Amino acid sequence: MSDLTWKTLSSEYLFKENWFTVRKDKCEKPDGKIIDSYYVFEFPEWATGFPVTEDGKIILVKQYRQALGEVCIEIPGGCVDDTDATPEDGIRRELLEETGYAFETVHYLGRTSANPSTNSNLMHMFIALGGRKIQEQVLDHNEEIEVFEVTMDELLQLLEERRIVQSMHMTTIFYALRYLDKLKYAP
């Protein structure tokens, strides 16, 4: 197989903030063709978790999403902070902050990208098992998150009704259901 990797010749930052940075790269393709303006969005690493309580309920959250203009049903997650040693530390912190639940075990399900053609970061996916509420939520100043629990059948009904629209959360849910052996494949 041939090498498809591009060489970055230069980079220029057009906008730079903690949560969103835009970079313009000048690249050279393996065939020598120059791409003068390739735009990259830089975000922090993300982590999301499929949280399951001690009694087998799945924890979901509802929050308003300004870009879509809707209240969305999601699973908890967020940015992996500089203070988090690992993505697992990040998801454990996010789960505790957003839901008030701590978990006995957390298993890594893999990584995914929202859009590898434009976004530089990854989202790390986890399943968290044995959750129990140990504190109240500790939310950021702009967060308003409603926490609720559903049974597996209720979650599957939400999926059937296409009520969860956050695609990266759907990816995590898919891998979590696979981990829990809840997906059946036809031969």
Rank of each mutant, 00 (worst) to 15 (best):
T83R: 12
I91E: 01
D153K: 02
E54P: 01
P87D: 14
W6R: 04
Q135I: 11
D25A: 05
G110S: 13
R132Y: 11
R162T: 15
Q157V: 03
L109R: 01
A85I: 13
S120P: 08
K182L: 08
E54L: 03
P76G: 06
I73S: 03
K16Y: 10
D81Q: 14
Y175D: 05
T172C: 11
E161K: 12
T99P: 02
T99A: 05
I59Y: 00
T21Y: 01
T48L: 00
E54V: 06
N18A: 15
E146K: 05
S10Y: 11
Q66T: 14
E12S: 15
A102C: 14
Y175M: 11
E146A: 06
G69V: 11
N119P: 01
E70P: 12
A128G: 08
R23Y: 05
L96K: 06
N121T: 07
E143F: 07
D82F: 12
A114Y: 08
Q166F: 10
K184P: 05
P30S: 12
E144M: 11
D84K: 04
K16V: 15
G69Y: 04
R163F: 08
F43D: 10
P51V: 00
Q135W: 10
D3K: 13
N119V: 07
V150F: 02
G32L: 06
L109D: 02
P76I: 10
R23D: 06
D84Q: 10
A67V: 12
G100D: 09
E54G: 03
I58G: 00
P76A: 09
G32P: 09
D153T: 03
G110W: 09
S37P: 04
V71C: 05
T86M: 06
D55N: 00
E144I: 13
E45A: 09
E45N: 13
D181T: 04
E94I: 09
N18Q: 13
T53I: 00
E28F: 07
I127F: 00
E54Q: 03
C72N: 11
D3E: 10
T171D: 13
N115Q: 13
D55Q: 00
Y108E: 14
C72R: 12
S2G: 05
L158G: 08
Q137M: 10
L183C: 13
E97I: 02
M170L: 15
G130W: 04
V150C: 03
K182W: 03
D140E: 15
E54K: 05
V106M: 02
L4M: 14
V147N: 01
F103C: 05
N142P: 02
V165L: 08
A47T: 04
M1I: 11
Q63H: 07
G90L: 02
T21R: 05
V22N: 07
F50R: 00
G130E: 04
Y13N: 14
L14S: 11
G32S: 09
